[in-house]
Amino acid sequence: MDITNEQRGDWQIMTVHGRLDAATAPDFDKSFQTIQDVVPLKVALDLAGLEYISSAGLRSILAAGKKAHASSGKIVFAGLAGMVEEVFRVSGFTAMFEFYSSVDEAVAS
């Protein structure tokens, strides 16, 4: 897995590539910790390069979402496709979070 962090305006943009599962979730958590103290925390997760997400990955994302919520910010998602989108949908994440087709769109919201 590959994660890059980028700041654009008041948005923190995290781009995730590869697989987000039990083995790589701790890396995601660590990467998220570097930005989690920003208030309000507004995170745009670019998941266009994400190939697979397991329940452990979903949990990391939920935890991130909770943090953002607590700081009166939010976490939004961009570029979901295929199996990952399916998992998000089935897991009911679509009801909890906002989704955009691209990061630009997400940041503009």
């Binding site: 979903l58 939920l62 949908r89 897991s91 009911g92 009801a95 909890m96």
Partner: peptide, 11 residues
Amino acid sequence: PPLNEPVAGVM
């Protein structure tokens, strides 16, 4: 048919 309702234990 999936109901797309969220996982339990979070909210």
